[in-house]
Simulated scan of single mutants.
Amino acid sequence: MRRRIGRVLFFAGLFYAPLVTAQWQVNLVEGATEISRSVYNLHMIIFYICVAIAVVVFGVMFWSIIWHRKSRGAKAAHFHESTWVEIIWTIVPVAILVSMAVPASTTLIQMYDKNSADIDIQITGYQWKWRYKYLNQDIDFFSTLATPREQISNEQLKGEHYLLEVDNPLVIPAGKKVRFLLTSNDVIHSWWVPALAVKKDAVPGFVNESWTLVDEPGIYRGQCAELCGRDHGFMPIVVDVKSPEDYQQWVAEQASLKVAEAASAQQEMSQAELMSRGEEVYKGTCAACHQLEGQGLPGIFPALAGSPLMTGDPAEHISVVLHGRSGTAMQAFGEQLKAVDLASVITYERNSWGNQGGVVTVQQISKLLKE
Rank of each mutant, 00 (worst) to 15 (best):
H323R: 14
S71Q: 15
Q364Y: 04
E293S: 11
K338N: 11
I91Y: 07
E209D: 03
E268I: 12
H80V: 13
M44S: 11
A95C: 14
L196E: 05
G312S: 08
G278K: 10
A263W: 07
V259F: 04
D140E: 11
Y40N: 04
G327W: 04
H323A: 13
D138P: 02
R69P: 04
I65V: 08
E216M: 12
R3Y: 12
S319P: 04
S36I: 01
E86D: 13
G299T: 01
N154Q: 12
P204D: 06
I35R: 03
S276Q: 12
D313E: 01
Q127N: 14
K283T: 03
W192Q: 02
D201R: 05
G159C: 12
Y112P: 04
A74K: 06
Q137P: 08
L309M: 10
K114P: 00
K114R: 10
H161L: 06
M275H: 04
G299K: 10
N41H: 14
A174C: 01
P217D: 07
R277Y: 06
E253V: 01
A315N: 15
P217E: 06
Q363S: 09
Y220T: 14
D201C: 00
C289N: 09
G6A: 15
V51A: 07
S38W: 09
I152P: 01
V26N: 07
Q336C: 08
L304P: 02
H78C: 15
A174N: 02
W191V: 00
A255P: 05
G31I: 00
A287W: 03
R4P: 01
G205Q: 02
K367H: 11
W89M: 11
R277E: 05
T124D: 03
R149W: 10
S36D: 03
I123Y: 03
F15Q: 09
P236T: 06
I109P: 00
V57S: 07
Y112K: 10
G334K: 12
L322F: 06
R69D: 15
W128N: 11
E155D: 11
R350D: 02
A287Q: 11
Y112C: 05
V187G: 06
Q127H: 10
A272M: 13
V178Q: 01
G13Q: 09
A54K: 09
W128P: 08
W128M: 07
F47E: 02
Q254M: 14
N27I: 13
G6H: 11
E30F: 02
L145A: 03
Y132H: 11
H290Q: 03
V51G: 05
